[in-house]
Amino acid sequence: MNKSNDNTTHDSSGEHLLEVRNLSTYFTAEEGIVKAVDNVTFHLGYGETLGIVGESGSGKSVTALSILRIIQDPPGKIVGGEIIFEGRNLLNLSGAKMRDIRGNQIAMIFQDPMTSLNPVLTIGDQMMETFRIHGRISAKEAHDKSVAMLKKVGMPLAEERMRQYPFELSGGMRQRVMIAMGLSLKPKLLIADEPTTALDVTIQAQILELIREMKQEFGSAVIMITHDLGVVASTCSRVIVMYGGQIMEEGSVQEIFHDPLHPYTKGLLACLPKPDEKRERLDPIPGSPPGLAELNPGCPFEERCNVKMEHCFENRPALKFYKDQRRVACWLFDEFKP
């Protein structure tokens, strides 16, 4: 997606589309309490594309599932915070109102569309269902709308696909169906959780292009969750970097890639192979991501950090504004060192 056609606007009241404030979602596991999302705060403007990056287990998906309130309880629970969507706190809505939000206002697509499509229903049944739930329209109308939407997402032989089952489609085609279903209701927000991770780069390019087109057409805001820094750089205007269930850094895509502040962000960028410099060895981040049940009280990245200081283990740095929209959680940038 091209950053330049990011149609970020604020609505008349000057509010953001989405504000996540101090969100915490925990899981009860054998090892103890897993703080999958721990005091996470961010916002999203109307029509904006925000990237959430981080290694596996950093809390990206749980953040997304929390926004939609589809955390499995037990073992999971949203234990604190607010999720303000167009001025309303989603955490206070009734189940019925929340279903309406999920159907009409916020759409989500997942890494593996197979898990969110019903294997025993045809593509047509599932597409038509989305239209019919949300308005009294005839089967014929729902059918025609579904075919039109499938054509719009570039599905070859759309009429024929309506009669097929999910397993008869390739991964790329299944993801198109998910996007068609998600976007058929012109949602204000699309959450895409690793939408292209399971796909080949050629198909990934098609899907990213499709999301870009749809975004332009419907003006939806997008939260693009990915571990692929290439996808972030080519699709997002603002980026949040997560690690250990917490936000490490936030900035514009330019700032994150050209002037990263947090040692974790720096490490992530440094370990990518660079085409134009012939290096003998890559610069990996040592160690591996921590288990979230056994985090130290301080910075979650402390164990792997190459510039850690003595107090980093015991004291967690707050996510503080560095300048403008720039936030970072690291003692290097905090004048009030403990």
């Binding site: 997606m1 091209n2 950053k3 070859p156 390739s170 790329g172 085609m173 780069v201 050629t202 198909i203 990934q204 390019a205 098609q206 990213l208 292009e209 692929d228 820094l229 290439g230 996808v231 972030v232 750089a233 080519s234 699709t235 895509v253 330019q254 890639f257 050209h258 960028l269 990518l272």
Partner: peptide, 24 residues
Amino acid sequence: QVLLKSIPIPDPDAPAEYAPLKGD
């Protein structure tokens, strides 16, 4: 050539070349 162009480059200033290969 298409394969190389399909790979998103981890640099926001990289020219966005979009001519995705059609179909599977």
